[in-house]
């Protein structure tokens, strides 16, 4: 209260005598403030997005006048690896949602509520992967996965297991290897958020539960989870979205042959990248972009519907 009174006084004194000249209506002032960001957003996102949608319906070369022409979609659906890309994105997203927030929640509860010494150190250890960017984590793991010199095969060899696995070269292993990098990097992000959330819970809640005779597991399910449920929902959403479009991992692991081997790590963004940016095939890439947008729209719309159901019930 004291602070606001002081601010109040400053505003008063510094504008003494200029009040007439500077008075513009609040609505005009708001417009002036909102316009820079709005104009830039229209240039950077809205117009490119609408153009992409328009081009995708303008035929295989993007120049048909008879609108709409679905030629570009015909090509897009024939793009090698398309269905694999869609499936990979969904698999990736589902695994990300299932694993990252769950492991992070258990870890955060153990660190924050468990009878564990060295909480500050533990928080930093859990955060470590997030010190690297997702792309750099990919580069590091591409070294770990190297079939002849990589750490993974070295360690397997040291305990007498087969040590010549082509982690990124074998189509049946590459996607899993890439998802592991993603989970390793994103679980710490969920941990960061959840441990902060748990720390903000009123300690008295825990004390009360303990006095009632609740053990650690019981407290986890009946105090911690209800309190962080909202945050968990947001994290699940973030993990789903980032999991669907985890381009940096794949780029770092497989560039310049993005999506290799034989489309095993292909996702829609890598197809858009190789068709539109590396290949210069704008109409097909535009159609692929619209497919991605539609997929996002359907999934986000579905989630919103389900949530409305739940909150109403």
């Amino acid at each position: 209260m004291e602070g606001s009174a002081r601010l109040h006084w400053r505003a008063d004194s510094s504008h003494e005598g200029r009040r007439r000249r500077l008075s513009i209506p609040s609505s005009v002032f708001g417009l002036l403030l909102v316009l820079p960001a709005t104009v830039l957003t229209i240039i950077v996102i809205v117009v490119p997005l609408l153009s992409t949608v328009f081009v995708s319906f303008s035929g295989p070369r993007g120049d048909q006048i008879t609108f709409p022409d679905l030629g570009a979609f015909v090509f897009a659906f024939q793009t090698p690896g398309l269905w694999q890309a869609v499936a990979n994105g969904l698999v990736w997203a589902v695994i990300a949602v299932a694993v990252a927030p769950t492991v992070a929640l258990v870890s955060a509860a153990l660190v924050e509520d468990g009878p564990v010494p060295g909480k500050a150190l533990l928080r930093f250890l859990f955060f470590c992967p997030y010190l690297l960017s997702l792309a750099v984590a990919g580069v590091i793991f591409s070294k770990f996965y190297d079939p002849s010199y990589g750490l993974v095969n070295q360690l397997l060899g040291a305990v007498g297991l087969p040590s010549n696995t082509q982690w990124l070269g074998d189509p049946s292993l590459a996607l899993g290897a890439a998802i592991v990098v993603f989970l390793w990097h994103e679980t710490p992000f969920c941990f960061l958020v959840l441990s902060a959330a748990i720390r903000q819970v009123d300690r008295e809640l825990y004390e009360a539960a303990r006095l009632d005779g609740a053990g650690g597991v019981r407290i986890f399910f009946s105090v911690t989870i209800p309190v962080v449920r909202g945050i968990l929902g947001v994290l699940a959403g973030v993990m789903f979205i980032t999991g669907m479009i985890a381009f940096p991992v794949i780029f770092a692991l497989t560039a310049p042959a993005v999506g290799a081997p034989s489309h095993a790590t292909e996702i829609l963004p890598t197809l858009i990248f190789s068709q539109g940016i590396q290949g210069g095939n704008t109409p097909t890439a535009a159609a692929l972009s619209v497919i991605l947008l539609a997929l996002f729209g359907v999934l986000l719309g579905g989630v919103a519907l389900v949530r409305r159901r739940f909150t109403r019930a």
Binding site: S26, T41, L49, I272
Partner: peptide, 26 residues
């Protein structure tokens, strides 16, 4: 007292539903 604030808000938060990959080509 900005007018059409819902429209402005919609434009400004479009990035939440349209990831960069959907408009990068253009």
């Amino acid at each position: 007292r900005l007018r059409f604030r819902r429209i402005f808000l919609g434009i400004l938060s479009i990035g939440l539903v349209a990831p960069i990959f959907t408009y990068i080509v253009w």
